Simulated scan of single mutants.
Amino acid sequence: MKTFRVIACAALVLLWTGAALAQDLPDKVQKRYEALKSFQADFDQELTNAATREVEKRTGVMGFQNPGLVRWETLTPEKQLLVVGKESVWDYIESEGQAIHYRSDQAFTSKTMIRFLSGQANLKEDFKVVMQGQDLELNKVKLIPKEPEPGLVLAYLWVDDEGTVKRVFIVDFYGNGNLVALKNFQQGYKHPADAFTFTPPKGVTILDNTKQ
């Protein structure tokens, strides 16, 4: 499902933002991640279908607040809002007049994904890290999951010298690609009180999956 491919990508972004590149990279990443409280950034996204080679381009805004609250708002080519709250997840597709409601434990069946979003991810435990040198004038890093999952079998990061992630590329079990480039990153961003809650607009069809 595209929604959770998006979440996987967001999770990796959360882990790597602000990480310093050095020989003791995993420890530095862990310390930076634990210190990260909140951020907001614009994103450009490309979803590539492995079978057809079709590429869907999206733009939007991503917000994060510790522990594990995510707001992923797609603005083009159509509006879609994904809100990861404390106990539930909402996926609202405006053009379809539909909102899907999940419990958090339903949405995040991936063990690694849960650990990322809850701030418990450990780079040394979860990945083999391979430095790839310079690419696009950035430091390229390859992440190989020690326990591959359907939504994440391989990932690449492009990080600047200050340690800020600029691009993330995730490959799933079927070979589909999810590339996200971040812009206008604002660390310590103060989100509105209702940023990580969602109330369906009147007239919207609600698909309640919370009791399944």
Score class of each variant (00 low, 15 high):
85 G>W: 05
132 Q>I: 02
22 A>D: 15
102 Y>I: 04
121 A>Q: 02
154 L>P: 05
75 L>P: 05
117 L>M: 09
164 T>V: 11
205 T>H: 04
71 R>G: 06
104 S>G: 06
66 N>F: 03
196 F>E: 15
42 D>F: 02
10 A>W: 02
177 G>F: 07
194 D>Y: 01
89 V>Y: 02
83 V>S: 06
158 W>P: 01
166 K>F: 05
33 Y>M: 07
184 N>A: 15
192 P>W: 00
37 K>D: 11
81 L>E: 14
53 R>W: 10
138 L>P: 09
198 F>Q: 14
188 G>A: 02
32 R>E: 14
36 L>H: 10
211 K>C: 05
100 I>R: 15
158 W>F: 09
120 Q>R: 15
3 T>E: 14
48 T>G: 00
62 M>Y: 10
155 A>Q: 11
136 L>F: 11
20 A>Y: 02
178 N>H: 14
195 A>I: 00
79 K>G: 09
120 Q>H: 05
146 K>I: 07
94 E>M: 03
46 E>N: 03
54 E>R: 08
110 S>K: 13
58 R>F: 14
148 P>A: 08
125 E>M: 08
144 I>V: 15
198 F>W: 12
195 A>F: 04
2 K>R: 04
55 V>A: 06
136 L>P: 00
27 D>I: 03
131 M>C: 00
118 S>V: 03
31 K>W: 05
112 T>W: 13
177 G>A: 04
203 G>Q: 11
197 T>E: 15
104 S>K: 07
207 L>N: 09
113 M>D: 04
22 A>M: 02
60 G>H: 12
